[in-house]
Structure formats: structure tokens, C-alpha cells
């Protein structure tokens, strides 16, 4: 990849929006959103989070299942985003092929 900093070299008439990095960030967020949704669905179909929280936190107000599902979803989202983000970053900063 020859261009590094500002790839949105417009010709003026076109509406400038996100640069390459912006688009990559959105792609990473979007793809990890998709996989996090799948992971949340499968995980919470088999695991009911409520009893675990009740054991960990025997006193005090327990968070609702909705809250636990939501937090679980964000956890999966962050984990997938880290993986996708690293992949994107490694692919986009790979050193140029050596000329022979």
C-alpha cells in the first residue's frame, strides 16, 4: 500500500467522507458486530447468566438478565473487534515486497 496518511485525495467535486482508516474502522466495527451477535445468541442459549451472578454476588441488588445479556454482547463485540482490528492493521501495514 503506497498511500499511508491521507488517502482521500478528492477531485473537489466529489463529497469527501471517510478516509481509508475511517472505512477500515467501520468495517472492523461492523464485522465484529455481526460475529458478536452470533456469539451472544449461541452463548446465552446455553448459559443462563443469572445463577452465576447470584453466586458471585450473594448480597446486594442483582443486575437484570437484560443487563447481563447486554454486557455479554459488548464483551463479545470488544473481543471480536480487537481480533479484526489487529488483522486489519497487520494487513494494511505490511512491508512492501522487496524488489529483486
Amino acid at each position: 500500500m503506497s498511500h499511508k496518511s491521507s488517502p482521500d485525495a478528492d477531485n473537489g467535486t466529489q463529497q469527501s467522507e471517510l478516509g481509508l482508516r475511517g472505512r477500515l474502522a467501520f468495517t472492523v466495527a461492523w464485522c465484529s458486530f455481526l460475529s458478536a451477535s452470533m456469539a451472544t445468541l449461541v452463548f446465552f442459549a446455553f448459559v443462563d447468566p443469572a445463577p452465576f451472578v447470584a453466586v458471585l454476588q450473594p448480597t446486594g441488588v442483582l443486575p437484570s438478565r437484560t443487563a447481563l445479556y447486554s454486557l455479554g454482547f459488548f464483551f463479545f463485540w470488544i473481543v471480536s473487534a480487537v481480533s479484526a482490528g489487529l488483522t486489519a492493521s497487520l494487513l494494511c501495514t505490511s512491508p512492501p515486497a522487496r524488489r529483486s
Partner: peptide
Amino acid sequence: MSRAEQPPADESYYQAHQKV
């Protein structure tokens, strides 16, 4: 930036968006 300096089209992921 002149045309020659722009990255070749097949190397860029990005295309400036034109509202439809």
C-alpha cells in the same frame, strides 16, 4: 494532487462517495 500521484484504482479500498 495530480492524477499521476494518485494510487492506482485497483490498489485503493476507498472511493470518494458521491451522493445518489
